[in-house]
Each structure stands twice: as C-alpha cells, then as structure tokens.
Design a binder for these strands. Structure first.
Lengths: 150, 150
DNA sequence: GCCAATTACATGTATATACATCTAATTTGC
DNA sequence: GCAAATTAGATGTATATACATGTAATTGGC
C-alpha cells in the first residue's frame, strides 16, 4: 500500500508546503460553494473559538504576519463576517465574529467536516500524529519573542 | 518540554498551512541573502535532481497548478536560472537547470542545509516521521488521474 | 485524413503572503 | 511630563497560488 506516485523531496519545507497545497485544494473544493477560501474559513473558525482578539493576537495564533491579515480582514469586514472596534489601545483592532460570520461558518461547517473526515480515514489514525508533529515543529521554530502574553 | 505557546487548531488543513508558513519563514530567512524565495529554491533543487522535465511534470511533482508555474518559471527564466525549449510535442516546455541556476543552487545550499539541520535537531528524530506522514497524506489526497506517467 | 475532443500552456483576475517603510499611539528613561 | 524608543497596524511592492477562460497543438473516432 501507499504506492508512492510522488517523488519524495529532500527539503522539509518543500515537503510541508506541498502537503499544504494538496490539503488546501481538498478543503477549498469543500468550502468554495459557500464563497470561502481556506484562510477565510480558518479565521472564522478561530474567531468562533477564541472570541474577541486583536489583529496581532490573531497573527500570533496563525503564525501569520499581522500586515498580511490587514488585507484578508478587509475583505471579511467588507462582507460583514467580522466586526472591528478600536481597543483601549487605540492602535489596535478588537476583532469579533459577526452574526453573519457565525452563520457563514455554520453553513460551511458540514462540508469542512467531510474533508476533515476524509483526511482522518485516509491517514488511518495517523492524522493525530501528523498534527502533533506539525504543532511541535511550529512551536519549536516560531520565534520565542512572540511570547510574553503568557 | 514543548510548552505549547500556540493554541492547537481543529483543522488539519489550517494546522499544516500554519506549519508551512512557519517553515517558509525559517527557510526564506536562510536563502534570502541569495535572492531566492522558498518556491524558487525548491524548483532549483528539484530540477537538479530530476534533470529535464516538462512544466506539467514539474507541476505534478510539486502538486502545483501548471499555470501557477508559468509565472514563477517566467521569473526564473528571466534570471537565466532555467533554460526552456520546446519538446517534440510543441505545446510543452522542456525545462532544465542552467549553469547559472546550478551555481545559484550551489551557493544557497549550505544555508539551506543549516535550516534543514536546525529542523532535524528541533524535532529530535521526529522529522523523518513527519515527512513520511506528510507524504502519505499528500499521496492519499492527490487525485489519481494525475498518474499515467508510471 | 478530417473533425471533435482533449491536452499544455498563457493570460486575466482574485486572494494569500511577507517585507520595507510609514504613521499614529503607547511605553520607557530620565 | 517629555523626548526617544517601541509597538500596532496601513500601504507599496513583489511573489505565490489557483481557477476560468483562451489558443494552439495533439489525439481519437470514423
């Protein structure tokens, strides 16, 4: 089994980027009917779990440059999936899932769960292992200065 | 150990995309002094290993849309890292690493090896496991129609 | 061999992504 | 409390990425 049709790559980064592309195709096929991209779905889901967070905190959680989020959040705010208000610190935005956004997430959730289920089945128990290793690596290489919040 | 500073994400796709972003930062920091992006380095390395391939074959290997490669290859061809010539089938391009490209790869290789080594150390033996699981998943979800070449 | 279907790549468009640089707000030293 | 240093996010720019669609070449059916 596992009759490799893809040549292995010598580079860990290239390998994980390739897997991310493959997964992105699978998941975007799933949520496309709801007008969502992978990143957008992820942000909806994270906001739903995390409640109110600043743009910078969201960037930390996703290991994504805060200025990258400026563009994606602009799209999502325009579509009224997210509400933003200034925090006590007037430089930062407090972000929250709007009712529309929560509804949007709810609608797409079954399609996402299907993709998620398919991955679990294909990996035959290995998906938890994969997630754990991926998270260990992310934690290990994500710069420590990013901590201070806890 | 492994005092998780990052919250786990419920989504396999989001998790792997996050890891890919973290890895990309590490590896791009390494090869940036040589004017290379992660994707560009990967293409140099793959061409060095694979010899002459068509654009479509390269897309299969990287699980990347062939039309995406059009843009990246245009950049790399402009910089003379790659030579393209029409194949017997005049629709396709036969791609090859140029001497300049091979030199470019050679120059950046030690910096890449450092990043690679750092990942290996951080993962304490788990990096092979991670690569294997990632490749299994990629093979499992990559559409089978993509085979015919072997 | 011809026409229809398919294939390989190009192009238009939208989003994702990061870095350099900029501005405004906050924090730190004194 | 003020000036200097830092921080949060915005903006300009370049690349990465995929999909829809277009064009030219190839293949398949007859």
């Amino acid at each position: 089994m596992s009759q490799s049709s893809l040549p292995p790559l010598p580079c860990t980064c290239a390998t994980l980027r390739r897997t991310a592309r493959a997964l992105t195709q699978l998941y975007e096929d799933a949520v496309r009917p709801y007008g969502l991209r992978a990143t957008q779905f992820t942000i909806l889901q994270v906001l739903s779990l995390a409640g109110e967070v600043t743009q910078g905190q969201l960037g930390h959680i996703l290991v994504m440059d805060s200025t990258t989020l400026t563009r994606t959040l602009a799209i999502m705010t325009r579509r009224r999936w997210i509400t933003r208000r200034r925090g006590r610190d007037k430089r930062e935005w407090q972000l929250q899932l709007s009712r529309t956004g929560a509804l949007q997430l709810e609608r797409a959730l079954p399609a996402w769960a299907n993709a998620q289920q398919l991955v679990k089945e294909q990996m035959d128990g290995g998906s938890e292992q994969l997630m754990k290793l991926a998270n260990d690596l992310t934690n290990a290489i994500t710069v420590k200065e990013d901590r201070r919040d806890e």
